[in-house]
Amino acid sequence: MANFINFFYAAILSGTPLLFGTTGEILCEKAGGLNLGVEGMMWIGAFAGFYTAWKTESVFLAFLVAFASAALGALLYAFLTITLKTNQNVTGLTLTTFGIGISTVLGFAMTENAGGNPQISSEFMSKLAPIEIPFLSSIPYIGKMFLNYNPFVYIAIVIAIVIALIFKFSKTGLAIRAIGENPSAADAAGINVTLHKYLCTIIGGGICGIGGAYMSIITLNGTWQSGGGVVGGYGWIAVALVIFASWSSAKAIIGSFIFGAFTCLQYYIGQFSFLPAFIREMPVSIYQMLPFLLTTIVLIISSVNSKKISSEPHSLGLNYFREDR
């Protein structure tokens, strides 16, 4: 049982950056913008957040700067696709390339400057330690499984829930959904299409950036690694997770943690003695394949299941020309 709890705990931690990325992308896609720059924005957030944490030692500033820098990247995307009407796929991919490139280069500059891998102080890191809630955290099993995480795990879940609630219950949420489905109808109804699209893209990008900072600061123990594996593909998994979660940030919570579980399954499954030996001893590559296999299966199911109304925003990936009615 202890093994399973450790596994559950590790799965939640691995899933958290995915949840930030997925929530951010859902916000953007709901307004019709297919931003493939998630990986790039996470990288920007990873570097900016780390640098600020290293220099200022303020948790609030670190994540604020991560949010703002990634939001700036998203603003670039928004300006190009919404105002200049460039192709969304190409622009998103460019943002990814740009984000990875600039963060890697600046990361090297930072490393050179520090004369070694920069490390955030342990006082800073202790502020991000798992929160011990008196009595509750020490409840057997439940305490460790649900009530003993670092603050950003809870923040990720809260953001996802708040965004789900906005879409479900608020007028703004309705307006954004309308834009995503049919921007000209929304425009005719008096909704400011451009403003809403801009805001969704920028705030969504900022949320992705927090996910990146989570990885560089928390996942990698506060040491900048110049090997290039800081975000390493999580942004792409987040893009796929949006489909998995069928554009609902509430479902994204479950989806992210399932994917998180798959990424750390290989390290824990060997200890699950209740499983038959051949499953415990399968080659590592099988486990590394699982998240992607799962994505493929989800894509197949969602494309075969054509009777149900698709939850994909109808105008996703299409630019809105006001004069083009």
Binding site: S14, G229, G232, V284
Partner: peptide, 23 residues
């Protein structure tokens, strides 16, 4: 022994190390 399957994948190394700590 915990196997990551890659010479350089910092995230996998973090997860693998944590699993060893847990063990």
């Amino acid at each position: 022994v915990s196997v990551t399957g890659s010479w350089a994948d910092e995230k996998a190394e973090a997860t693998a190390s944590k699993a060893l700590v847990d063990a």
